[in-house]
């Protein structure tokens, strides 16, 4: 008889994802703000059509890593980086990779719901309209599809012209997800998407995340370990800008390999 146990490995990068190919691949990635290193020597693979969670204490670099995945750091001139990140085998920093195109393929949802001060409809259509004019009929279809995908359609179908800011926090967050989905991304990055929400809204967002993984690769940053445990398939634990442990969520939350991980997820003093 064999032990019912995932084969342990010595490096997160070598985890056996044979069941699903990786969508994003981070190779020897390092990032610094000015002189201050934020991420060092990171290597990990994000499996396709799965939910991968980044957990770790504040300032561990998990959000920094997430933002690096769609090059949001480009705005900040003091940021320098080493190593590479590949999306479906393509280097995202390659000169032929247009950053706007990258961000359409790798969507992002932020901690505080940030709908634009427009109607619900215009919010969802925002990304589409950036891609040029298209028939209203088609915009209507995409808006409905996106709102349905984000499980928001039934709640807002009668007031698409109402201000997006009239929605509750949880609805706003799902609207933001719908807005991102409307652009048709392959990867969805979620930066603490439920931390500003009440528990019920938070659960709705988690349910949505679970449903979305049939078509999308999701990467989730969260402070809430129970949330990571609930929704993710794989979990990466980062500390001080380093990847400490990366593996299937089941293993990481019942029997982590390293004491640092154990201490963090069980709330012990290091």
């Amino acid at each position: 008889m064999t032990v019912m146990q995932h084969t342990p490995s010595t490096s997160g990068a070598l985890i056996d994802f044979s069941a699903h190919a990786s969508s994003l691949e981070v190779r020897d990635f390092a990032l610094r703000y000015g002189d201050k290193p934020a991420l060092s020597n990171l290597t990990l693979r994000v499996p396709r059509h799965r939910v991968t969670a980044f957990i770790g204490p504040s300032g561990c670099g998990k959000s920094t890593l997430l933002r690096a995945l769609n090059r949001l750091h480009d705005l900040n001139e003091s940021v320098s980086r080493e190593g590479s990140i590949h999306l479906e085998g393509q280097d995202i920093h390659a000169p032929e990779m247009m950053v706007a195109e990258l961000r359409r393929r790798v969507g992002m949802v932020f901690q505080v719901p940030n709908p634009f001060p427009m109607s619900i409809y215009d919010n969802v259509a925002f990304g589409l309209r950036l891609q040029g004019r298209m028939p209203k009929r088609r915009v209507d279809d995409v808006v409905e599809w996106a709102l349905r995908s984000a499980a928001l359609w039934d709640e807002v179908k009668d007031r698409l012209r109402a201000s997006a800011w009239s929605l509750s926090g949880g609805q706003q967050q799902r609207l933001v997800i719908a807005r991102t989905l409307a652009v048709g991304p392959e990867v969805l990055l979620l930066d603490e998407p439920a931390s500003a929400l009440d528990p019920i809204s938070s659960l709705k967002v988690e349910e949505l995340i679970r449903n979305l993984k049939s078509t999308l690769t999701l990467v989730l940053v969260t402070h809430n370990m129970q949330q990571a445990a609930r929704v993710s398939d794989y979990t990466a634990f980062l500390q001080d800008g380093e990847l400490v442990e990366y593996g299937p969520t089941d293993t990481l939350f019942t029997n982590p390999r390293l004491a640092r991980t154990e201490n963090y997820i069980t709330g012990r003093m290091a």
Binding site: L72, A100, R103, M108, V112, T180
Partner: peptide
């Protein structure tokens, strides 16, 4: 977050400025 929201949808900086 509003600016980042626009950028994350694939808007250029000009589009972000004008539309948001």
């Amino acid at each position: 977050s509003q600016r980042e929201g626009a950028l994350a949808l694939g808007a250029t900086r000009t589009e972000m400025l004008w539309r948001v």
